[in-house]
């Protein structure tokens, strides 16, 4: 394994809840290369969101080892610094702060950095431009459509220039048309910003956009063979099915 190339290295990772009665992760082994786009699929309760939380250092594992962006997450104490620097989260529900405007929502992750307010504003505006919301910066999130809110959430996830974007069903709460736009945006930003993208999804056609598809079942990973068609063909197939 080339350590410089691998941004995520997980070995025999275990996590259980309810005094060990529920085994959410039951010996996960995973290596993700820098700049890769990974889709994680699986039924509800299979452990895919738990795995995402472990990678994002939102939760700690019980056993095994997990290294992300060169940080040993089993040992590291200051996980907030790691999250601020290395991880960008995109949730199913955008989770924007309702009393802050679009620009302020994007600036929020930069509070833990040493950036000046001018630089914070510049970065936030640049990203809002990249997600097509340059004209909505002063709007309150409640005035935006679902797709627009998710675009703000994507800008927020990218604003600290993280190594990895963790997206937990980013299109789950959107209609298919808006979902497609968001997926395309995520894929484009992943390519443009050269950021590693790990996405949890229920939708097989969404998963097909990734470089690799991982199936999580009963807390274990099985790698699935990917349809090699390009994105437009995949989307077309899906729409025909629908």
């Amino acid at each position: 394994m080339n350590e410089e190339e691998n941004i995520i290295e997980i070995k025999d990772l275990k996590k259980s809840y309810d005094n060990g009665k529920i085994k959410a992760l039951n010996g996960i082994d995973l290596v993700v290369k820098k700049g890769e786009f990974i889709s994680i699929m699986g039924p509800s309760g299979s452990g895919k969101s738990t795995l995402l939380n472990m990678i994002g250092a939102l939760d700690r594992a019980d056993e095994g080892s997990i290294g992300v962006a060169g940080i040993d997450l089993m040992e590291s104490r200051d996980l907030s610094k790691f999250r601020s620097k290395e991880i960008g989260f995109v949730f199913q529900m955008h989770n924007l702060i309702p009393n802050l405007n679009v620009l302020e929502n994007v600036e929020i992750p930069m509070f833990e950095t040493s950036l000046s307010s001018k630089e914070m504003r510049r970065r936030a505006l640049e990203l809002l431009g990249a997600v097509g919301l340059a004209d909505r910066v002063d709007q309150n999130p409640t005035k935006l459509s679902g797709g627009e809110r998710q675009r703000v959430a994507i800008a927020r996830a990218l604003v600290n220039k993280p190594s990895i974007i963790l997206a937990d069903e980013p299109t789950g709460a959107l209609d298919s048309k808006t979902g497609d736009i968001i997926l395309k945006l995520l894929k484009d930003l992943h390519t443009k910003e050269q950021v590693t993208l790990v996405m949890v999804t229920h939708e097989p056609y969404v998963a097909q956009m990734a470089d690799r598809i991982l199936n999580v079942l009963d807390g274990k990973i099985n790698e699935q063979k990917k349809d090699e068609s390009d994105l437009s063909v995949i989307l077309k197939k899906f729409k025909q099915k629908a």
Binding site: G56, K81, I87, N95, F111, N160
Partner: peptide, 16 residues
């Protein structure tokens, strides 16, 4: 509560 979770997810320290 959810908002505080988001703030933690984007890297805010507990002290903040």
């Amino acid at each position: 509560t959810r908002e505080i979770g988001v703030l933690k997810a984007v890297g805010w320290k507990s002290s903040r």
